[in-house]
Write a protein that binds this DNA or RNA. Structure first.
Length: 103
DNA sequence: ATTTTGACTTAAG
DNA sequence: GCTTAAGCCAAAA
């Protein structure tokens, strides 16, 4: 059921540990639909559980901070991640060091 | 019910 | 390295 997938996406997003990031595709996979990366982004945009869903820990497949409408956009998002201890390579996240791997 | 749009991803030029 | 193209998904119009 689509609704279950949506819930799962939020659940996974919520499970991202501090100082780590994950890609939309990864979330989609963990949620059951490996090809729903786009839909995942759409869910982040809706973000029904803003304080409970750290959508700022979700980045593109190459570590680029895309979207994010709030807190100064990607700039605030980047600062937030830096503050959490996420490794950055210039303007993108260093996925080799900070991509979240499910426990 | 059909079309458009978008916080995606991968491949190819 | 950037732009196009195609693929897949879900929400909104």
């Amino acid at each position: 059921m689509k609704n279950a997938f949506k819930i799962k996406v939020y659940e996974v997003t919520r499970a991202i540990p501090k100082g780590k990031v994950t890609t939309y595709g990864q979330i989609a996979k963990l949620s059951g639909n490996a090809k729903a990366a786009r839909a995942v982004g759409a869910f982040m945009r809706m973000n029904p559980d803003a304080p409970n869903t750290p959508c700022h820990r979700v980045v593109a497949a190459d570590g680029s901070l895309t979207g994010y409408s709030g807190h100064g956009g990607v700039v605030g998002k980047k600062k937030m991640l830096l503050k959490e201890g996420v490794f950055f390579k210039g303007s993108v996240v260093d996925l080799s060091r900070s991509q979240w791997k499910r426990s």
